[in-house]
């Protein structure tokens, strides 16, 4: 059942050079967007190990987002391409765990795109709200002992 009052918990990994600056710009520009995303600043989207994502879901996140520089703009030249390769493979694997595609997202946000940041976070929040709680630690755990 779709519960419009459900507030999803979303963990966001933001690249320090572009996306975190973009998020900052959204703030300083007084743009409004849902408060459901907990931002974690990383040096590069290529630093986001797939196990960070798995752990976030395991510990109660309803969604996980990775934000990086646009292709070609990476401060370390290739980090965001690495993120893209890992994301594509991880998305397929998460599906096998039963985690819906919409819960795991990769977005390119530049330092100048505060408005885009607010928009993609708002969109993700609404779509994850529709998917409902994931509640991983409760899944199947009551079944033994």
């Amino acid at each position: 059942m779709f519960d419009k009052n459900f507030e999803p918990k979303i963990v966001g990994f933001l690249c320090r050079w572009c996306s975190y600056q973009g998020a900052d710009l959204a703030g300083t520009s007084r743009l409004e967007y849902p408060p459901n995303l907990t931002p974690i600043r990383v040096m590069c989207s290529g630093r986001v190990d797939p196990s960070f994502v798995m752990r976030a879901f395991a510990q109660g996140a309803d969604g996980v987002m990775i934000f990086g520089c646009h292709p070609g703009d990476c401060h370390y030249q290739e980090g965001n391409y690495k993120a893209l390769r890992r994301y594509t493979m991880l998305k397929k694997m998460l599906k096998q765990f039963g985690i819906e595609e919409g819960r795991f997202r990769l977005e390119w946000v530049s330092a100048a795109e505060g408005e885009r940041f607010a928009r993609v976070v708002a969109k993700a929040t609404e779509e994850i709200r529709e998917l409902g709680p994931l509640n991983w630690s409760k899944v199947r755990e009551a079944q033994y002992a």
């Binding site: 290529g46 190990d49 797939p50 196990s51 994502v53 798995m54 292709p71 290739e78 391409y81 690495k82 893209l84 390769r85 890992r86 594509t88 493979m89 991880l90 397929k92 694997m93 096998q96």
Partner: peptide, 29 residues
């Protein structure tokens, strides 16, 4: 997750469609 991390980073393409094609060939990650 750790293996996926290292393996995905070895794929020799930066093109979104090409990456997807390669990932599609892993039947059961």
């Amino acid at each position: 997750a750790k293996f996926l991390s290292s393996f995905a980073s070895l794929l020799d393409t930066n093109d979104e469609t090409e990456i997807q094609k390669l990932v599609d060939t892993i039947v059961d990650p």
